[in-house]
Design a protein around this nucleic acid. Sequence first.
RNA 1: GGCGGGUUAGCCAAGUGGUAAGGCAGGGCUCUGCAAAAGCCCCAUCGACGGUUCGAUUCCGUCACCCGCCUCCA
Length: 465
Amino acid sequence: MPLFLFNTLTRKTEEFRPMDPSGRTVTMYCCGPTVYDSAHIGNFRAFVSQDLLRRRLEAHGWEVRHVMNITDVEDKIIRAIHASGEPLETFTRRHEKAFLDDFDALGCRRPAVMPRATEHIAEILALVKRLEDRGAAYATPDGSVYFSIERFPGYGKLSRLDRAQLKPGARVNADEHAREAYGDFALWKAWSARDGVVAWESPWGRGRPGWHIECSCMSMKHLGETLDLHCGGEDLVFPHHEDEIAQSEAATGRPFVRFWVHNAHLLVNGQKMSKSAGNFFTARDLFARGYTGRELRYVLLSAHYRLPLNFTLEGLDAARQALARLDAWEARLGAAAGAAALPAPGGALWKEFGAALDDDLNISAALGALFEALRASNRSLDEGQTTAAEAARALSDWLAVREALGLPAPPLAEAPSDVEALARERQTARAVKDWKRSDALRAEIAKRGWAVKDATDGFRLTRQP
RNA sequence: GGCGGGUUAGCCAAGUGGUAAGGCAGGGCUCUGCAAAAGCCCCAUCGACGGUUCGAUUCCGUCACCCGCCUCCA
């Protein structure tokens, strides 16, 4: 069954196939974090949807060569270390580590390569030189190098912005350097006093890379001159990705990216979540409130990636409930399957779920199929109509779905021994119909953070959120 | 101003030219010592106004409101 994806370049939903002649490998580049602060959950919406895409690509049998850059030299970073006096590398590695901790907590699989900009200065300089040699870029007297959009006829094809419309405005900084045209952007920035010790030698003097060049450089280095997929938030369409196309294609003369995949923003109170607006949550903020990575992941995943998603704590609570239902179902299926061997996934659920995701990652339809399957299965279990083999088949489908969603296994229902003992004591009390004592024990168990639920064959303990 | 997206039940959210998936919340019921879990049932006519059509939420037009991008941004 083919996979269809919306391609920002063509503004159409197209069938995706890797360009690899053997049809086995997919190249995927994702714009990664700038490591200067804790990423907020809006940032993570991008990484979670990219992870969902990657898992779907893998479900199709393709090997995904996934690269995500780490931007570790940039204005905000320089400003921060200037204030703290910390060395660049110490500062950025600390934030990179924090980022990856959150990345892992959200169930995102690590990209195969996570190149850092500062470790590719030589390659960046080579690319800038190549662009200068080809006449696509020019150096200014102060030692900066700019890309000339005039000399790249395709400029604007991704964002569909008219070059003639690129006029200096409120958000265009007064030009500190001598650019030839307003749309021109820096490939290499000459050193200025604000940069302090952050500088590298170059043929044009001391300086540092511009923002866009690292992605062109590192993606092509690790994945080749033409990529299958390039992902990022929709705010990167212009100028970042437009500029990447210009730089890369001017240098190689080849198409840079086949499919551009952009996700919409996370909103808070209907407004874009952003650092500058101050209306953001970090993953840590939510963990501190007792929410888990899988709950947050579920929320971030629960709306189609190209539509804005309004984030609320109520949404997180809804995710918690939905997950609890799924976890309970998984436990039931496991018990019903017993020792029956798990077949390969391939039942109606797995097929319908996959078909929905193949339609440009239609997560809502996919989740719809999941909960319909859940209800039908629970009903059958209630009626005692499910054989061990059927339960195993359903469980196999569900585990495959869970993996496709990247949801970690339910938290272990292994209660501490004191809680376990209280529950046993309560069971004894119930056997002699000592309801008062039974209820007191339940309250005590609850006090210790667990909920006890009676079943015909004993009791079950679940962690109380 | 240019470009793009949105408006479906209390909240979140699919979808289709023939009378609207799913999740959360809410109500009723079954089960249960109670509770929980699970199951069953109930809960919308799809922003407004026109048009096309046997029939539109779904197509076309106009309007309203919201959001994003137009060189910090996932």
